[in-house]
Design a protein around this nucleic acid. Structure first.
Lengths: 209, 209, 209, 209
DNA sequence: CATGAATGAGAGTTCATTCAT
DNA sequence: GATGAATGAACTCTCATTCAT
């Protein structure tokens, strides 16, 4: 159970009714738009509400404050990301470990590629938040999935799978993020991706014998 | 030539006189303290000036606006980091490439370790800024140094050194950053560091033969 | 004829049907609860409606606006108070004037004692209202009763009964209110009560000879 | 030492410099004007600042929030009132007790008469505040002065002076307040004043023998 | 040059009231 | 009639920036 953030950061009510769902989605979408076109500095409640076609009051019906909105948006994104990672892990169950690692790289890379600016913007938006709890919870969830994938790989590796998992995920997440933060062109970036895979393979081969 | 940021972000004058130097340093130090103890949200000009023992007016003598202060602080840090990387590169000139990579890891790791919270705080402070220019300039400078180091290594590698440099730096910077963002304990983190080195070594071996 | 308050302050309809009666009572009760536990600042329509177990819309069926609700609550309380004073006056008809005064003190004191916090809260709630009309109407009604009581006392007093009534009521209402506004303990307060009676008696004796 | 109110209610800095003094006075005066002409409901920070000829920001330089402003205004008034009562008490030192009581009535009556609407407005303004501490501190201060005056009267009274003080002050403060809350004309009100004095005299005579 | 009181645009947030369902 | 989501005007408060002293 992650520690509660100091101010309320979760939606006031679960958006279950279809009416609410639409409204909440519109607010999320508006937030993303503003985040992309203007940045965190220009993300004001008024602007978001306007963009979403609702009143500020309505926004506050669903989010107790501005922070909570940004927090929820990040949560939504991280949940999606976690689900995709989990799907990959399920699919790669029992396959050779190098292939598993490569699949993990592909998944992360794909998410980044799909919405480069958005992931960038979200990284920035979360910087001003009390978001450690959220990020740690996400990390824990994803780690659980990948650790299990690596443990149950066909060519079971070293005794300490959790250390292996830590290394691979740290390298993969870090490298992918860093790769996209540089403004590389298509060719460079795809070359980089293959080499990253090669590096993981090389390492796994070296420890696997 | 990096695009100019929309508002002036550089100090109005080079702090050459010793009086100014002291003042500017006090302001930087105060900014760091506030950033560490309160976070970016509480970083107000009044608070910084107070902490630095100067008046707001004086602060504006040296920094045209608040952004410029944060920008300059980051610039100062990145310059220091670049210098240390350059020093490492100079020192590793002509050594085997794997050793060079390890030295790069050690340098980055050392900087992070010395001031974990500060680097974290600076990452956050820069998130709200038009700082792409700064970061790209820094990346270019550091890349120049490392590329040269790798090119002139005793066991000169592949034809495309710049691709090799890209891979190694992306992996190293990304992984180091990611490693410190998780709240790992001393043992985990030092194990991680050796494995990261091992991974680089394994890769270089695999492509070097 | 008291001046009309600027916005409608009376319930839209007399709550004659038993259904309505129950609803209105629930709303009143909820208002009192909120007033006591949270104070006037937290008395919002949403909170009251929730506490009363009805929707805001329903509340607006019975009270055209928030002011009207508070106004009506005060009116209800003042009516009750007036009725008790009138009962006392009827009962004291023809008795010696000093006894009448003492009975008046007892009645006021009793009402205050029964619901100290409520009377206090009501005083506060009425402070932000255009309530002069209400309070004057109440004063006039009560004055009518007491004046008559004093006039028809067995030992009829001075020629100017209305001046006598003014003095006695002013002193009694003022003193009782002031007494309860200080946070006195049981002993002090009951001693104060007897002395207040003694004072009235002394005065009446002095003018009655 | 009175309990601290939950939110800061005292001015941020003592207005000692003459520049500040002027500003603070302008703000107080503006607050009074708004209170008198519009009432507590219309007392907004913007309106007060405008009326005072300063910016909102300046207001917040001297008062941490709106409550604090109203609180300080009441404090200022009560301090003045306390000083006048203390002056009266000093002057009446050693005089017969009935005269002392009459002087107390005169003092209170004078203050009320001088600024009827203001005292009314202040009563209302304080109703929405966490002002118990302030009022109790004021009551204690004034009680100290009057108790001493009664104790050292030439015709020293009953053994329990503090009970006597309680009765007299409760009756006087309560009655005076109540008298002015009714909208009496000049004749009625001066007649009432003499009778109030007469009543105190009668009581003191009755217990003094 | 240094100071820091003054500024005021603009941010986040609340809540009485309405009206489509 | 009852509901409660939606509204948006209005409020309090902040803080980067200026400029008279």
């Amino acid at each position: 159970m992650p520690t509660q953030p100091p101010v309320a950061l979760k939606p006031r009510k679960t958006p279950s009714q279809s009416r609410s769902r639409v409204t909440v989605d519109a607010i999320f979408e508006a937030t993303i738009q503003v985040l992309l076109s203007q940045g965190m500095g220009e993300l004001t409640t008024t602007v978001v509400a306007e963009r979403a076609g609702v009143s500020v009051g309505t926004m506050y019906q669903y989010f107790p404050n501005k922070q909570a909105l940004v927090y929820a948006l990040n949560e939504r994104f991280l949940t999606m990301l976690a689900e995709r990672v989990e799907a990959t892990c399920a699919q790669m169950q029992g396959r050779p470990i190098a292939e598993a690692a490569e699949a993990l790289i592909d998944t992360y890379w794909a998410v980044k590629t799909e919405r480069v600016e958005l992931t960038q913007a979200l990284y920035r938006s979360v910087a001003g938040l009390e978001s450690d709890a959220l990020l740690h919870a996400f990390a824990a969830r994803v780690d659980r999935a990948t650790t299990q994938m690596f443990r149950q790989a066909s060519n079971s590796p070293l005794p300490d799978e959790s250390a292996l998992n830590l290394l691979l995920t740290t390298v993969i997440y870090g490298a992918v993020r860093n790769a996209f933060e540089r403004g590389l062109d298509g060719e460079e970036i795809s070359a980089l991706k293959s080499e990253l895979k090669a590096m993981c393979r090389a390492y796994l081969t070296s420890v696997g014998e």
